[in-house]
């Protein structure tokens, strides 16, 4: 039976750490499709691997039919546009129900199987971390990058989210793909949650303690300081980074801790 879910493991360098983490995911989630996907100015080179690898160039991404967002695409640096490979993939593979996004520098000190099983009960179109509405997040962020078709949205309609570990539904990607084609643009951390909210899609936090955290997951899976631009202190932040070597590694992955946590960025 074909998988309803796909993990898009986002990386652009073929490293032992990436292979270790992907192997761990494959071992724990054998029924879920997994694709390593990334991009670069020139196509990143990956050695043969026992899983599908899709490496794109910025020129490939420039072919997406997003007239505003890509009108002045910087071929060398797609800041805030790391969601483009996801949209590229969705347009060619729209049959999945859920698209899980995991960046290469995410670690989970628990069982991926258990986490995925728990989150599979969520009906949200976007599962992410540190989701906050503009009115409750006055700190500088990517708000000025946002463009929507028609009249400008009021501040009350703006939302941000942190996406290194996230899940989006097929409906959510339909909304985002059609939105970008219609003129939506912006940094993905603002564009995704805001455009989805505008389409009455449901947002939910993976855990944490924010207004979008369901009671059953409150205080679980990660910590972050959503009011600070760096999201620090916390385990799932933008800065500062954690060292991969600090996570005790066994043969098949990280040591499982009593309180499983998501960590980012681990380099």
């Amino acid at each position: 039976m074909p998988s309803r879910d796909v993990i898009l493991y986002r990386g652009h360098s073929d490293t032992p750490a990436l292979r270790r983490e992907v192997a761990r995911l494959r071992a724990e989630l054998p029924d879920t499709d997994l694709v390593v996907i990334g991009y670069g100015v020139s196509k990143p080179v990956f050695a043969p691997a026992p899983w599908p690898v899709i490496m794109l160039t910025t020129a490939d991404l420039a072919e997406l039919p997003y007239p505003v967002r890509l009108a002045f695409l910087d071929h060398d640096w797609v800041n805030g546009s790391c969601d483009l490979p996801v949209l590229w993939f969705y347009r060619r593979n729209p049959h999945y129900e859920h698209y899980w996004l995991i960046e290469y520098d995410v670690r989970y000190t628990g069982s991926w199987r258990a986490l995925f099983d728990e989150l599979s009960g969520s009906q949200a179109d976007l599962l992410a971390t540190s989701i906050r509405d503009r009115l409750h997040a006055p700190t500088p962020h990517w708000w000025p990058s946002l463009l929507s078709p028609g009249a400008p949205l009021p501040d009350a309609a703006l939302t941000k989210a942190f996406l290194p570990f996230s899940r989006v539904t097929r409906r959510g990607l339909q909304v985002l793909d059609a939105g970008c084609a219609a003129g939506w643009s912006g940094h993905s951390e603002v564009l995704w949650p805001t455009a989805l909210r505008a389409a009455a899609c449901m947002l939910e936090e993976v855990g944490g303690d924010g207004p979008y955290t369901p009671p059953a997951r409150r205080g679980r899976h990660y910590t972050a300081s959503a009011d600070h631009w760096s999201l620090a202190p916390g385990t799932f932040v933008y800065r500062p980074g954690f060292r991969d070597a600090d996570f005790a590694v066994r043969d098949h992955g990280l040591v499982l801790t009593p309180e499983p946590m998501l960590w980012h960025p681990v380099k």
Binding site: V68, F72, D74, W77, N79, P144, S145, L147, S148
Partner: peptide, 23 residues
């Protein structure tokens, strides 16, 4: 900064595009 530009130029019917970002 497309959003503030959009707020300023939308009433004039002027389209706004994001610029390539200087790093």
């Amino acid at each position: 900064e497309p959003r503030p530009a959009h707020q300023v130029f939308h009433p004039l019917g002027i389209p706004v595009y994001p610029a390539p970002e200087l790093r």
